[in-house]
């Protein structure tokens, strides 16, 4: 058994007097897709923000054995832990191509960058067709593809995706879904935070359910799939 790539232990986040995350712990293995589901406002984004170094927290977060409290957000990215936020945070007046180049701006392996660029355009042909288009003029689905593509340009070992299907048409969700499957086959570790539990259950091997800042349930895909509460409250199957 390999060491976990990411370990979160007793994570607590406070926004003023509000206790947003209450003692969250989880561990993610190399190469797996790990799903975090829960309703809007449950604390999924807060957890990802804490891992990425964007909010102060109590507890321990280790990535490849390194305590992330000791490194800044830039170093976390350079170490291969890449975050695709719910807002996507693209560079709105840069073209698709420039946005992708920004994903690789810190890399020195220029030949590999070119290979990754080809890989991203092959993974998302819509981006290839729109290389010179400014990001702000693209549809939500195309922007989501660009956000994932930009993250891939950083040569990630682990990708954190926050609500990648939010507000997208089913046909686009299928494109994102296909891309995730291909990336997973290539060995990429993915932490997937989703309100769309059906989507998360389709991809994740293990999952956690977060409600009001606490992990209510953690287990394998099968355990979640067979859990009556999850099926009724989150998947809509009775």
């Amino acid at each position: 058994m390999t060491d976990p790539i990411l370990e979160v232990e007793d994570l607590n986040v406070y926004y003023g007097k509000s206790h947003a995350l209450k003692g969250v712990s989880l561990s993610i293995d190399e190469g797996e897709i790990y799903g975090v589901i829960g309703p809007n406002g449950a604390g999924k984004t807060t957890m990802l923000n804490a891992i990425a170094g964007f909010v102060d927290y109590e507890g321990t977060i280790r990535y490849r054995g390194t305590d992330l409290a000791t490194v800044n957000p830039q170093q976390i990215v350079r170490d291969g832990l890449i975050y695709c936020t719910e807002d996507r945070d693209l560079f709105p007046f840069f073209s698709v191509h420039e946005n992708l180049l920004m994903g690789a701006q810190f890399r020195e392996d220029r030949d590999a960058v070119q290979d990754d660029l080809d890989m991203v355009y092959e993974l998302f042909p819509r981006l290839d067709e729109r290389r010179e288009q400014e990001a702000e003029t693209m549809s939500g689905g195309e922007q989501q593809m660009l956000a994932v593509g930009r993250a891939l340009m950083s040569d990630p070992d682990m990708l954190m995706l926050d609500e990648p299907t939010l507000g997208l048409a089913p046909v686009i969700i299928q494109d994102i879904s296909d891309a995730l499957e291909r990336l997973s086959e290539q060995g990429l570790t993915i932490l997937l935070a989703e309100q769309n539990s059906t989507f998360a259950l389709r991809h994740a091997e293990r999952l956690s359910l977060i409600e009001t800042g606490e992990i209510e349930l953690a287990g394998t895909y099968e355990e979640f799939h067979d859990n009556e509460y999850v099926r009724e409250a989150y998947v809509g199957v009775h």
Binding site: A52, F54, P73, Q74, V77, R78, I82, Y83, C84, T85, D87, D89, L90, F91, P92, F93, F94, M102, G103, Q105, F106, R150, A151, S154
Partner: peptide
């Protein structure tokens, strides 16, 4: 230029 467009985007790309 990227930072002038999105500080968070810049942080996400390791700037």
């Amino acid at each position: 230029l990227a930072t002038s467009m999105s500080t968070r985007g810049a942080e996400l790309t390791g700037v």
